[in-house]
Amino acid sequence: MGDRLAGKVAILAGGATGMGRSTAIRFAEEGAKVMIADRNVYGAQETLAMVKKITPDADIVSVDVSKWDQVQNMVDATVERFGRVDVLVNLAAILMLTPPLVDIEERQWDLIMDTNLKGTFFTCKAAIPVMLKNGGGAIVNISSSAGLDAWTRSLPYNISKVGVIHLTSVISGQYTSQGIRVNCVVPGPVDTPQARGSTQSSQTLEEAALEHPMGRIGRPEEIANAILFLASDEASFVSGATYVVDGGARTAGRRL
């Protein structure tokens, strides 16, 4: 418990489960007012109950980030409830496994791109004007190590996540001078429902842990700590940056 986000209002898009849930709890512990935004309303309610044990200043809003009117509503509801927006964390994303390129269906491509990339564009587009009204803020986008390295199990996911990294750079170039810091966290393998669901079996995750330099995969709380740092004033000179949080997996060396 601290005060590193005391009085700040944070929107957590994708806040219902996994890293989003851990971030909501971590932010609340540091004094933030938290809006949990997700299309998974059941998950959001569970997270809200956990956050409410820490602070009364928390709420949920239902949103599909790929729909502009719903995103606008998410920001409006936050301002109505808490009066402002200081921090936006974009955690909403889906990972669908796809076959190799030739066999990828257009609708798979669209679903992944719409949530992961267009959704991040939409939430930034809606939140930035409100942040500018109170003199600035911080945006933290969540990419994936699949956005840095080739990962054959879902080309659309890879591309959406590299898009998030570059979107972060460009938005930072446009809004840092107006007081909005924009950064990106790139998690490696982390034990979330998404990761468990998308590896298709629990055994796959256990095997990934065995090959990891730390002998385990990441915990959602460990990503939440990086998000907290970037959202807080401690990162006041950090903008346009990409923080890889993968426990050194990328440094393990390739088997040539």
Partner: peptide, 21 residues
């Protein structure tokens, strides 16, 4: 059943699937 990413669309944005399919 087999793809949790797809499952979440079916759960939370079924109208997208109604259109697409």
């Amino acid at each position: 059943v087999e793809d949790y990413g797809f499952r979440q669309i079916a759960q939370w944005s079924p109208d997208d699937l109604v259109d697409q399919w």
